[in-house]
């Protein structure tokens, strides 16, 4: 399973970076979204994929019974997903405003800040 996910993550990174290098703003955002997914999945995978119980500590014990899934990476991913969601929402609004102001979706035409 980990091997399959490794390829999926690699493909997501590659697709994300490829999309970012396109000229369209919408594709840029799509690329950023894919990159975000890739890092989330990476954290999920490096924490080792096991079929195990949830990490709940029974009464009277101090550690959960082995084997259990490490809860920390999942907490990290949750946080990262929430942050990513906020940023993506902002990105969409930004792209829409930029499209209205510049009148094109083409990043190569956005050179006003490079020349003046």
């Amino acid at each position: 399973m980990a091997v399959v996910l490794a390829f999926v993550i690699g493909a997501l990174y590659a697709a994300g970076l490829y999309m970012m290098m396109r000229r369209s703003m919408v594709k840029l955002i799509a690329g950023l979204v894919l990159l975000g997914y890739a890092s989330n999945l990476l954290i999920f995978t490096v924490a080792r994929l096991t079929r195990a119980q949830p990490p709940l500590i029974p009464e009277g014990m101090t550690t959960p019974p082995e084997p259990f899934a490490d809860p920390v990476p999942q907490a990290l991913i949750l946080t990262a997903i929430v942050i990513g969601f906020g940023l993506q929402a902002f990105a969409l609004v930004l792209v829409k405003r930029a499209y209205q102001a510049v009148g094109t979706d083409d990043l190569d035409k956005m050179k006003a800040t490079d020349t003046t």
Binding site: M20, L28, L32, L35, S39, L42, I43, M110, T113, T116
Partner: peptide, 28 residues
């Protein structure tokens, strides 16, 4: 000009976030 600058800044910073997050994950 602000919106154009913002898009460049935004894209680069989101890319950093992804790198940073991956690095933290691998380190963990």
């Amino acid at each position: 000009a602000q919106l154009e600058g913002a898009i460049k800044y935004f894209a680069l910073n989101l890319l950093i976030s992804a790198f940073f997050l991956s690095a933290v994950g691998i380190l963990y």
